[in-house]
C-alpha cells in the first residue's frame, strides 16, 4: 500500500510541476493549483486506506443473494468496483474545483491546502511506520526524485514547443474550425487529456470487460493460443495505434480510413479468426469496444474544444 501511494504521489508531483510550468499566473492559478494538488493527494490516501475496503465489503455482504443485482455484481465484480471508485474520484475532483471557485479570500485557500497537506503527511508517515518498521530509504527517494525532475523538464520543454507551434498553426488556414477559436493552451490541455484517456486507461477497461470472453483462459486452448500470438505487449500497442488512427480519421472527417484500419487488424489474425470461433468472438468484442470508446473520446474532444 505504501509503495502504491508513493507512486501516486510522484505522479501528482510530476504532472503538477508540468502544468504549473505551462501556466502563466493569471487569476491566482498558483494558489488554486496548490489546493487542488494537496486535495488530490489527501483524497487518494483517504480513499485507498479508509474507504475502499469497507465499500467493497458493504457491496459483497449487503446485496441479498436472491436479488438480480447480486448476480450482476458477482459476475462483473472488478468492473463494478472500478467504475464506483472512479465515480468517487470524479466526485471528489468536482468538489475540489467548486471549493476553489467559491472562496475568494487567498488565505482560505492557503488554509485548506495546508490542512490537506498536513493530514496527508501524517497518514503517509503512519502508513510507512506501520508497514516497514524501519526508517525510510532516502537513497531510493533521491533516485526517484532526480529521475522525475529530469523527465518533467524534458516533457515541459516539449509541451512548450508544442504550445508555440499551436500558436503558429492558428495563423495558417486549417481545415478544422475549432482550431481557430480556442486559445492554444486550452487546445493543448484538451488534446492531451483525450490522448491520455485513449491509451492506458482504455486498454485496462477493455481488458477488464473482455477478459470474460478470453479464450486463453480456457486450459484446453492455452498452448495453441500462446503459439499463435506474437510479441508480449504487441496487443496493447496495436490497440493504441488503432484508437489513435481512428480518432484522427474521425477528427478530419475521413471515415473510409476507419474501414481500412479495422480490416488491417483483422487480416493480421485471419487464421485464428477463421478457425477459432471463441477467438473471433473475443476479437470482435475487443474491437467494437475500442471503436466505441474512441468515438466517446472524440465526442469529448469536440465538447472540450
Amino acid at each position: 500500500a505504501v509503495s502504491q501511494s508513493l507512486h501516486f504521489v510522484w505522479g501528482v508531483l510530476f504532472t503538477s510541476v508540468i502544468l504549473y510550468g505551462l501556466n502563466d499566473d493569471s487569476d491566482g492559478f498558483t494558489l488554486k493549483w496548490l489546493v487542488i494538488v494537496s486535495g488530490l493527494l489527501f483524497g487518494y490516501i483517504l480513499f485507498e486506506n479508509k474507504i475502499k475496503h469497507p465499500l467493497n465489503f458493504f457491496f459483497t455482504s449487503n446485496l441479498s443473494s436472491e436479488h438480480s443485482l447480486h448476480m450482476f455484481y458477482v459476475k462483473n465484480r472488478s468492473i463494478v468496483q472500478f467504475v464506483i471508485q472512479q465515480m468517487l474520484y470524479l466526485l471528489w475532483i468536482f468538489i475540489l474545483n467548486e471549493l476553489v471557485t467559491v472562496s475568494d479570500d487567498p488565505w482560505i485557500l492557503v488554509g485548506i491546502g495546508l490542512l490537506f497537506l498536513l493530514i496527508f503527511m501524517v497518514s503517509l508517515y503512519a502508513l510507512t511506520r506501520k508497514e516497514s518498521r524501519s526508517h525510510y530509504p532516502w537513497n531510493r527517494l533521491l533516485k526517484h526524485a532526480s529521475t522525475y525532475i529530469v523527465l518533467s523538464a524534458v516533457t515541459l520543454i516539449l509541451l512548450q514547443i508544442l504550445l508555440q507551434g499551436l500558436e503558429l498553426l492558428q495563423l495558417a488556414t486549417f481545415p478544422v474550425g475549432a482550431f481557430v477559436t480556442q486559445s492554444p493552451y486550452r487546445m493543448l490541455i484538451a488534446l492531451n487529456f483525450v490522448l491520455l484517456l485513449l491509451m492506458k486507461p482504455t486498454n485496462q477497461v477493455i481488458r477488464a470487460v473482455s477478459s470474460k470472453y478470453d479464450p486463453k483462459k480456457d486450459t484446453a486452448l492455452t498452448s495453441q493460443a500462446e503459439q499463435d500470438s506474437g510479441f508480449k505487449g504487441a496487443g496493447a500497442m496495436i490497440g493504441n495505434l488503432e484508437r489513435l488512427l481512428i480518432l484522427l480519421s474521425f477528427f478530419f472527417g475521413s471515415l473510409l480510413s476507419v474501414v481500412a484500419i479495422l480490416s488491417i487488424k483483422a487480416f493480421a489474425r485471419y487464421k485464428l479468426i477463421a478457425e477459432d470461433p471463441y477467438f473471433s468472438e473475443y476479437f470482435v468484442i475487443g474491437t467494437m469496444l475500442s471503436v466505441l470508446i474512441t468515438f466517446a473520446c472524440y465526442a469529448l474532444l469536440v465538447l472540450l474544444l
Binding site: 507512486h7 501528482v12 510530476f14 474520484y89 492531451n192 487529456f193 486507461p201
Partner: peptide
C-alpha cells in the same frame, strides 16, 4: 481548471502505477 485536475488524476492513477 477541471481538465488539469483530471489530467493529474489520470496520469498518476493509471500511468504511474506499476
Amino acid at each position: 481548471m477541471i481538465i488539469e485536475t483530471l489530467i493529474a488524476h489520470v496520469v498518476s492513477y493509471f500511468y504511474f502505477q506499476p
